[in-house]
Design a protein around this nucleic acid. Structure first.
Length: 864
RNA sequence: GCGCAAGUGGCGUAAUGGCAGCCGCGCUAGCCUUAGGAGCUAGUGCCCGUAAGGGCGUGGGGGUUCGAAUCCCCCCUUGCGCACCA
């Protein structure tokens, strides 16, 4: 009796062999092209489930597949090991984060091992170890030196639950991304990275990233939010000292302040009928009239109290208060009232806007509510308006104060400028540039660019992170720690208690130090860095992981970088991927690496859900890797996660489906029952003259499958790769039933099957390869060489070519009949055959065939 | 609200202008067996029909085309992203 498929016994044997032979350990090689494949390194949370397996199975497939294709593949792994969960757990149960983290790393390595995932473990890094964070600190100092790291007092996002500040990117809908607590604003002095200096390059270079999903590029583009427009100065006429109210028509006073606005539509300035300042705008206090002071102060206070969510909700009805002061519209010279309203944000642009209710929805809503004048400056160029030649505006649109009746409608679409002095009649496609030229010529403002992106706040009042290498000296001030004194080591004797400040602030031996400049007593910075800093350069460290003179050498970085294939979750589409791009550009500017972009191709895989939700311990819906391996083996699990559906989409877990995949591998196993031999992996040029029809049919199936599987792996369509292989095994089984396994054709099919399946199900294929290879005489397989050292199978177009094609016959586009024809049938033969078919005759009888369409080798369509 | 995806059997999906439903799950009937998480055979979109055969069918409506799941327009639903960024 043939031995049964026993995955557990097979798998551990080969796992051991791969690791001990260091099969996937790599050094630069001159005669092979390099391929750097990387899966986002994980936070060591401890246990892996099938969602993780999908991620790592894809990465492992890429590494093994490219190796078979002859690339010198680097496939490293490491640990994003700093972070809040370990510290929060320490507060709860007293286990030190370092101990827990290193423990979890060992556990997870064991699970990678059991999945048959192979890495170059010689390159392993953990961001929490001093020989890694030393260089994180080094890069911080590089940023500092280049003016890209700085400290400022700012209203920051504070999570009252995690007791730390958060980057803008970590605030989701006004809540902490991590714990969900409502984020509040606090004024604190914090460290920032000047990522805004790179905003333009971060946007522009997205165009280079053609190997990225368009969705991710769009998300980054939107996040950076570049907009072009103009800053324009509006002089204030009338304030509490010299002109309390009613400054209509008055010329600007020499002592009056000027308010600068930012607008993306400078062309609509002739329609600016009022101004709105953010409640926090510094000039508010100066310009408010005594009569309005109380109302204004009340409004400002209320706005401060409001949470970010309340304030930023666009469904909220707009509110505002008049300051009593007026400004002059520099183009119309009309005095316009100055209001404050919380729909204007102090953090964007200049914190002040010119309101154009005639062509801005928000301003329109505000104007209608507070009865402010509305002027249309754009007329739709749709032929429905008649132009009045005397004033260059459609006669049906007039400046109508709201007191005369219903407000004029808002219009922001394309058209012609009206009510706009020298801009009248200019089409909106040109009006923006024309307006900027006009405004600049008159010295009233200038073209500018604005970004939604803010500088990256990196200070965290937490323990489990890389200490910021700065010392505060009473005499020298803020002093960077000299690089030769790095690392600033994170002390281990720390008390974990729930509280406001960084635990480091209570460690006297850490805090008290001497000033590197003057040698006097000084204090260390006690904040640590955002863990996104650690993960912004790890892919560079993998190139040169043991370097103790520098973060990495230029030579090795230039050999391996950029990463050819990066794989990970779409949840990192903005944060990690943008920060990593920023770091790469800074390091490139510093001459440390040639690559301007870190990741050429990016693949974001979908989640695996169970009961409709992402697998998580708290929901109790996890399918642990360990269970899977124990039940069916790693190969079944790996193949099933690849087969479940398109890998970039979410997929719902199915126990029955996993069982089905186990049955498939059993079928594969049985295909090797008996005396199965292997053949040369490349069937091109094979002489098939003496092959039987079924031999040629089988070989055709094999070569069609090689083509499909190769193309589908290249496209990351692993689900269809697997299904193509399944079809081939079905064909092999039928062949075997009729002709047995001891033919050349079967031998080639069996060889190709193992080779194609090898990157997906590495253990069973290795086992079957060695077993079958032992009886092979035509090649060296079987002793020292395993399936993973073989070249990827070659595709032969001649062998894949069909001899017989099934021609579809349509009448008026409806399928009515099919007929088998030789593949080299001519158009005339095909059409004549089609017209003569018995089934077709009733449809064309008595009618005239007006047209006949012929698609070679596919169909004939008769139009009657 | 704006933007981007997606919508196909009982389920996961396949087909990117040319036979809709490959592959798998599930299910039905039968067979086999040192009774297993096994294996084999046949069937399985819906409706009419014993059958042969016919009709319908890819969220809804319209269009382009000899021919549309696929391309275009409108609408509906779901998911994701952004959300008062001037």
């Amino acid at each position: 009796m043939y031995e049964r498929y026993n995955p557990q016994a097979i798998e551990s044997k080969w796992q051991k062999s791969w690791l001990e032979s260091k099969m996937y350990f790599v050094e630069p090689e001159a005669d092979k092209p390099k391929f750097y494949t990387l899966v986002m390194f994980p936070y060591p949370s401890g246990d892996l489930h099938m969602g993780h397996m999908r991620n790592y199975a894809i990465g492992d497939l890429v590494a093994r597949y490219r190796t078979m294709q002859g690339y010198n593949v680097m496939n490293p792994m490491g640990w994003d090991a700093f972070g809040l969960p370990a510290e929060n757990a320490a507060i709860k149960d007293g286990i030190h984060p370092a101990i827990r983290t290193l423990d979890n790393i060992e556990r997870m390595k064991g699970q990678f091992y059991k999945m048959g995932i192979v890495y170059d473990w010689d390159r392993e890094v953990a961001s929490c170890l001093p020989d890694y964070y030393r260089w994180t600190q080094w890069i911080f100092l590089l940023m500092y030196e280049r003016g890209l790291a700085y400290r400022k007092k700012a209203a920051v996002n504070w999570c009252p639950n995690d007791k730390t500040v958060l980057a803008n990117e970590q605030v989701v809908d006004g809540h902490c991304e991590r714990c969900g607590a409502e984020v509040i604003k606090k004024d604190l002095v914090q460290w920032f990275f000047r990522i805004t200096e790179y905003a333009d390059r971060l946007v522009d270079d997205l165009d280079m990233l053609e190997g990225w999903p368009e969705r991710v590029r769009t998300m980054q583009r939107n996040w950076i939010g570049r907009s072009t427009g103009a800053e324009i100065d509006f002089p204030v006429v009338g304030n509490r000292e010299d002109d309390p109210v009613g400054a209509h028509g008055r010329a600007p006073l020499p002592t009056s302040p000027t308010i600068r606005v930012y607008t993306t539509r400078p062309d609509t300035i002739f329609g600016a009928t009022f101004m709105v300042l953010a409640p926090e705008h510094p000039v508010v206090e100066v310009i408010t009239t005594p009569e309005q002071r109380e109302a204004v102060q009340q409004y400002v206070q209320q706005a401060r109290k409001e949470t970010e969510i309340e304030r930023l909700s666009s469904d909220k009805e707009k509110t505002g208060v008049f300051t009593g002061a007026y400004a002059v519209n520099p183009m119309t010279n009309a005095a316009i009232p100055i209001w404050i309203a919380d729909y204007v944000l102090v953090t964007y642009g200049t914190g002040a806007i010119m309101a154009v209710p005639g062509s801005d929805e928000r301003d329109y809503e505000f104007a209608v509510k507070y009865n402010l004048p509305i002027v249309n400056v754009i007329a739709p160029d749709d032929g429905r308006w008649t132009m009045d030649d005397s004033n260059h505006r459609p006669s049906s649109i007039v400046h109508r104060p709201p007191t005369e009746g219903a407000p004029v409608p808002m219009y922001a679409g394309p058209g012609l400028m009206v009510n706009s002095g020298p801009l009248n009649g200019v089409p909106t496609t040109e009006s923006k540039n024309a307006a900027i030229a006009l405004i600049e010529a008159e010295g009233k403002g200038k073209a500018t660019t604005n970004y939604r992106l803010r500088d990256w706040l990196i200070s965290r009042q937490r323990y489990w992170g890389a200490p910021i290498p700065i010392v505060y000296c009473p005499t020298c001030g803020e002093v960077p720690v000299p690089t030769e004194q790095l690392p600033v080591v994170l002390p281990t004797d720390v008390e974990f208690r729930p509280g406001g400040e960084s635990p480091l602030a209570h460690v006297e031996s850490f805090v008290n130090t001497i000033c590197p400049t003057c040698g006097g007593p000084a204090r260390r910075e006690t904040d640590t860095m955002d863990t996104f800093v650690d993960s912004s350069w790890y892919f560079l460290r993998f190139c040169d992981p043991h370097n103790d003179k520098a973060p990495f050498s230029r030579e090795l970085a230039d050999h391996w970088m950029p990463v050819d294939q990066y794989t990970g979750g779409v949840e990192h589409a903005i944060l990690h991927l943008m920060y990593a791009r920023f770091f790469t550009k800074v390091l490139a500017d510093a001459g440390m690496v040639g690559a301007q972009e870190p990741f050429i191709k990016l693949f974001t895989q979908g989640m695996i859900t169970k009961d409709g939700a992402k697998m998580s311990k708290s929901k109790g819906n996890v399918v642990p890797v360990d269970d899977m391996v124990e039940k069916y083996g790693a190969d079944t699990g790996r193949l099933f996660v690849l087969f479940m559906g398109p890998p970039d989409e979410d997929a719902e877990w199915s126990d029955e489906g996993a069982a089905g995949m186990f049955r498939f591998l059993n079928r594969v196993w049985r295909l090797f029952e008996g005396n199965v031999t292997l053949s040369s992996p490349n069937g091109a040029g094979r002489d098939t003259a003496d092959y039987s029809q079924s031999d040629r049919d089988l070989l055709r199936k094999v070569h069609v499958t090689i083509k499909r599987v190769t193309n589908d792996i290249e496209r990351f369509h692993f689900n269809t790769s697997v299904s193509a292989i399944m079809e081939m095994t079905n064909a092999m089984q039928s062949y075997r039933d009729a002709h047995g396994p001891e033919t050349e054709a079967y031998s080639e099919a069996a060889t190709s099957l193992l080779l194609m399946l090898a990157p997906m199900a590495p253990h069973i294929t290795e086992e079957l390869w060695r077993r079958a290879g032992g009886t092979d005489v035509s090649r060296s397989a079987g002793s020292s060489e395993g399936v993973h050292q073989q070249p990827w199978p070659g595709f032969s177009p001649e062998l894949a070519a069909a001899e017989i094609v099934t021609l579809v016959i349509q009448v008026n586009g409806k399928m009515r009949d099919k007929v088998d024809m030789p593949a080299d049938v001519t158009q005339d033969e095909a059409i004549q055959t089609a017209l003569g078919r018995e089934k077709i005759r009733p449809y064309i009888e008595g009618k005239e065939a007006r047209q006949v369409h012929y698609v070679p080798g596919r169909l004939v369509n008769i139009v009657v």
